[in-house]
Amino acid sequence: MKRLINRKPNRGNALLLGLLPFVILVIVYVFASHSRLADNAEDKLLPSIAQMAQTMDKSALSPSKRSGEIIFWNDTLASLQRLGLGIGISAALGLMLGVPLGLIPLVRAGFSPFIAAFSMVPPIAILPILFIVFGMGEVAKVALIVIGVTPIIVRDLQHRVEEFPKEQLIKAQTLGASSWTLAIRIIVPQMLPRLLDSVRLTLGTAWIFLISSEAIAATEGLGYRIFLVRRYLAMDMILPYVLWITVLAFLADFILKKVTCKVFPWYAKKDAL
């Protein structure tokens, strides 16, 4: 008898096992929904899959009566724009701050404790201040994501730079590299894939901040729609939106992973992505 830890599923079985939890979830949902609907055909908590499809088709995927826009794509576009901007700015800031923090002891001594402390401030708790500084519009939503995500990326990158093999730095120095050359030619190129890793890990956090910012004040967006229709318990709209957010987040993660593999094959191979 093989030990459990040595029993490996083949490709087909692995796929089946991977799908199993999803299938169970769907079955449990359909069952629970069915039993609630049998009691009350108008039940809103657990709508049937057909109901959800119908609502999405009628309310979200048909041109809206008032503006003629298709709110589903409108919401998606608005949210993705905010998320993209927020993540992009955070990544850029992360690189610009993380590298010097990790590489230059003087900078580290000066700012590392501050960044560490700043990253602990829960942005949601200081919202009123953010409103005054960034207003209530698009800037505020992007800013909330940036404030929430940047410190995590900065700290992660700083640690990655600190972990950097000293041998390479010494070798470069013996070849006459200045600090600037070191940073630009040695550190940054090797940090880029690690930055992408960091971005992948913070995507979930970024989504949370995006949805919260849209719940606070907005006129469109995935989070806006969910919090709006929650006012009349329209789970037939909320659940498909949640599913869509999950799919988008999964896709973003997948794309970043593929980009890392494609652009930095040396890194991907090393970590067996």
Binding site: R66, P128, F131, I132, M136, I216, A217, A218
Partner: peptide
């Protein structure tokens, strides 16, 4: 209603929102 534009704002944050110049 089409003469104005409604911005959904959480009741918990509306006091702070008023302090913002955009509101």
């Amino acid at each position: 209603e089409k003469d104005i534009k409604v911005v959904n704002t959480s009741d918990a944050d509306i006091v702070a929102a008023f302090a913002s110049p955009e509101v």
